[in-house]
Amino acid sequence: MSEVAPEELIVVPLAVAAERLQIDPFEFMRLLVMMGEVPATLQISEALIDRVRAAAGIELWWAEDVLLPTDASPSRAIVRAALRQLLERGFVGARATRIDNLWRGRPEDEALLRRAVSLLHREGMVGMSRSRAGVVVSVSPAAVPQLDAAVRGESMPAALAALA
């Protein structure tokens, strides 16, 4: 017993573990299966929560200090801030991130950001695919200058005009 780290001993129910990562409990289960780490009981240790977070690339981008750019449209400001994070963190081409990282910490804007990603995906500016880590997105390399300009507020892709 003594050699087991407290992180392995301290356990929380599945629903709480999923809430810690701000994901759905069934998505938590899916990730456990993909990792081959389904525990004997669904009391999840803190260490396992951390491993799931790392394996799936679950990140919290919307910390309190994230500033929204000045924009006449509040929706567009949020989309620009999300795109800025995507670009700044280098999620371009083959380097993709879970789509829900875009709105984790800002659940009230999930629908808006889902729609924005969908519109950009349709225009080929954002790549989207299913992987063992979940649905992942990245900026298409050819679209970096255009989205960078959008982030800076210099121009907005036509695909996002409807969001204004």
């Binding site: 129910p13 599945l14 629903a15 709480v16 809430e19 409990p25 069934f26 289960m29 899916r30 669904l42």
Partner: peptide, 21 residues
């Protein structure tokens, strides 16, 4: 899922989660 987070007993979610697994 929502009910369990709001305090409903866990067995229902456990059963569902095992099926999902």
């Amino acid at each position: 899922r929502a009910a369990t987070l709001e305090g409903a007993p866990e067995l229902e979610l456990t059963l569902a989660a095992r099926v999902v697994q």
